[in-house]
Amino acid sequence: MAWDLSVDLIKATVQLEQPVGDGSRTVGTGFLISDPTPGGKPRTILVTAAHVFEKMPAMSAKIGYRVQGKDGVWRFDPTTLKIRDGDHPLWVKHPTRDVAAMEVEAPPEFVKAAIPINYLAQDDTFNRYNLGPGDEMMALGFPRGLSANPAGFPILRAGRVASYPLAPATSFPTFLMDFSVFPGNSGGPVFMAEGARRRPGSNQTQEVQFVAGLLTQQVELSGERLEIGIVTHAKFIRETLALLDKLPGATVTQAKAGKTVKGDPPMPPATPAVAISATAMAASR
């Protein structure tokens, strides 16, 4: 496979967290997209579920960047991300869906790692590849604040599409995935990275690599988790990104490497959160 979306998305996915007064923290997942301005200026956008930011009351959060040393070893390097200016949110929210986006000034390694916007699924993507129930997709996130290792890389999960039909997104804005979802997963990318899928009506194979959407909810009924995730289509990520172009004088938020919250050392990424608010509960869509 010439290009591996799973590895690239792992590099582009970050933990978002905000300490809570009782010593616990609110945790969510976000990922970076490269989306130039209408004038062609490079721009790095952080995408997550809107409720992740909404459940963070303070003006700043931490974004879990990672740094690779000269010896090749990665280390967790969370930095401060301003998400509010007083009572004014610095992110834009989709008017009807649980999607948020904000422009960030990321370290050079993460600017390079940001996923090009053209890898977000379009309205016809599911039909073009003849995708449906039973097809496997993957998701990245930080369940209960856990990471894959002390360097802060996200945990990769896999599950099968559990609903039908999947398109059009205007009629079916979300779809179901059969896999366990935990607080901390919200906002993580859901994607397909298949190297040899048969073309519809042909014996030829093709690479199928695209971001299908982001995880926004888990299904819970009468207090019981059903181990089903709800994915919001990438169409609504695209629409949220378009809202950034309508802002008067786009403001870049500062999230530079090496600037952590004074007096609040970063909690090790492999430590489970005591309190979490990263996945909304829902009995239905």
Rank of each mutant, 00 (worst) to 15 (best):
A162D: 15
V47D: 04
G21L: 05
E103I: 02
V20Q: 06
V104F: 00
L241Y: 12
A212T: 02
P108A: 10
F153T: 01
G184F: 06
V274F: 09
A193S: 15
G152Q: 03
K82A: 12
A58W: 07
P265W: 01
S60C: 09
L90R: 14
T271H: 11
T96F: 12
F76Q: 12
P183E: 06
F76M: 11
T37E: 04
E17K: 08
V20Y: 04
E105H: 14
S6A: 13
Y129F: 14
P89I: 11
F210Y: 12
I45D: 05
T279C: 02
P143K: 09
P173G: 03
K259Q: 14
P133E: 13
N127Y: 13
P108E: 05
G86K: 08
N149A: 05
T216M: 01
G229N: 04
R197V: 11
A158S: 05
D77Q: 15
T37R: 09
D245H: 09
D98N: 10
I115G: 05
V161Q: 06
L166I: 04
Q18W: 03
G134Q: 03
L241D: 00
E103F: 04
I83G: 04
T26M: 09
Q68H: 08
F153P: 00
G213P: 04
A242Y: 15
R25A: 02
D8C: 13
R66Y: 10
K41D: 14
A12L: 07
